[in-house]
Amino acid sequence: MRKPSLFTICFVIFVASWIFLRYIVGSLISVPIPNSVIVMYMALILIAILVHISVEDSRLSEFLRPIIETLVDENKKVRRIVLVVLIPLFMLGYTYTNIAQKASPPGDPRDAHPSPPLELTYKDEVIEDVENPYRHLEKDNPEEFKSHVENGRRVYYDNCFYCHGDHLDGQGHFANALNPLPANFQDPGIIPNFQESFFFWRISKGGPGLPKEGTPWNSAMPIWEDHLDKEEIWDVILFLSEYTGYSYREVGH
C-alpha cells in the first residue's frame, strides 16, 4: 500500500478531531460541548496544520500536489468530476438545513440552589438556630435521636415521596410531569454541599420562596410551613441524611 499523502493525513486529522470533539467527548462527559467551543478548537487545529505544512517549501508543495493534481491532471478526471458535483451539493444541503431550521424555544436559565436570604424564618418567626436543634441528640441521646429520625421518615412518606421518590432519588410517581424535576437527595452534590439551615429554608418556603434566579414561578415545591410544624421539618432533614448516608455541610465550613 502506498504511504498516504500529506494532504490525506492532514485531512484525516482534521475530520477525526471534529468527530472526537463533537461526538466522543460529548458522550464521555454526558454533556455535549457547545458549538462555539468546538469552532475554537477546530480553528486552533487548522492553524497548527497550516503552520506544519508551511514550515518548509517542500512540505507545502507536497501538501498542495494532490490538490493541484485533482484540479488539472488528465488521469484524475473522474475524481474531479465527482468533487465538482459533490462539493456544491453539500453546500446546497448545508445552507438549506441551516436556513430552514426551526426556532428553538427559549431555555429556562435557572439556578437550582440560589443563596438563601440572610435571615432564616418559619412563617414570620425568625429562627436563631442555624443548626438543627435535634442534631446534638445524635451524641447526647441516641434513643431520642432515633425517634426524631423515625418521625422524619413518617413526614417524608406522608408528604414528600410522591415527588422525591421512595429511594429519595427524585423519581417519585408524580415526578415525570414536573419541570424542573424534584431534587435527588442521592446525588452526592446535594446534601454534602448545603447546611441543614439551607434545607430548612427550602422546605419551609418552597418554590414560591425562591429568589428570582431560582425561577420561583416554575417550581412545584409546596410552601411546607403551611402544612408542617418546625419539628417536623427538622426531623425530615435528619431523615434525609440518615437514609442517604450523606452528611450536611457543617456550619462555618
Binding site: V84, I87, P88, M91, L92, T95, I99
Partner: peptide, 14 residues
C-alpha cells in the same frame, strides 16, 4: 440562498 451558495462554490472550484 442555498442555490446561490452552491453556484458560488462551483465557481470557486472552476
Amino acid at each position: 440562498y442555498p442555490p446561490l451558495v452552491a453556484l458560488l462554490s462551483l465557481g470557486i472550484l472552476v
